[in-house]
């Protein structure tokens, strides 16, 4: 049983989802890039933006809101969101660490990096620290094999990793992270 299956009843208290004005404007700007009647095409960028606006994850009400904006059935959004790995269907920490675990990174020690982070944060892969700061994920090849091993946080690539470097990075993030870091950077929504 995949653990991202929520299957919960809709929380009627929580259906009042509102995206920021900037986010809505950006969403509509993106939707206009597709021919009339093909606005469903914008679903992936919209989900990225929605996720950035919703503490890094997509709850059913958030997805329903996206469905409403796109004028499609909610199930069409659930189907898409659950297909792609970048969408978190359960709450995550402010800082989601995504370490590449595919061949080339693996040949150069990605496992050690994962183990190191697990030890340092005292969580297992897929888990979130108790303080809600970090979530550790492993992901497939991020097209950075020449600078392996590597990890991604938000939109940023951290390459040529060593345990020492990761140690510093995590400390940095712990100190400097105030709000959720999303793949679609917040400042790119405002711009």
């Amino acid at each position: 049983m995949p653990d991202n299956y929520t299957g919960y009843k809709m929380d009627t208290n929580n259906t009042n989802i509102n995206f920021s004005e900037e986010a809505l404007q950006l969403m509509h700007k993106i939707m206009r890039r597709y021919p009339e009647g093909r606005q469903k095409s914008a679903i992936l960028p919209l989900l990225h933006i929605a996720q950035a606006e919703s503490e890094g994850w997509l709850s059913a009400p958030v997805m329903d809101k996206v469905a409403e904006i796109l004028k499609v059935q909610p199930i069409e959004v659930y189907e898409v969101a659950s297909f792609y790995t970048m969408f978190n269907l359960k709450p995550v920490g402010k800082c989601v660490i995504e370490v590449c675990r595919t061949g080339p990174c693996w040949l150069l020690g990605a496992e050690d990096i994962v183990k190191f982070i697990e030890r340092k944060l005292n969580i297992k892969e897929g888990e979130t620290t108790a303080d809600g700061m970090f979530t550790l994920k492993t992901v497939e090849c991020l097209a950075s094999c020449g600078s392996a091993p590597m990890m991604q946080v938000g939109e940023k690539y951290h390459e040529h990793l060593t345990c020492e470097k990761v140690d510093e990075l995590l400390d940095d993030y712990r100190v400097n992270t105030n709000e959720h870091i999303s793949h679609w950077a917040k400042d790119k929504i405002k711009a």
Binding site: P2, N4, Y5, Q73, P74, I75, E76, Y78, E79, S82, F83
Partner: peptide, 10 residues
């Protein structure tokens, strides 16, 4: 009409 089920995950 109004499909409510589909294929989720992959």
């Amino acid at each position: 009409d109004g499909r409510v089920h589909g294929v989720i995950n992959r």
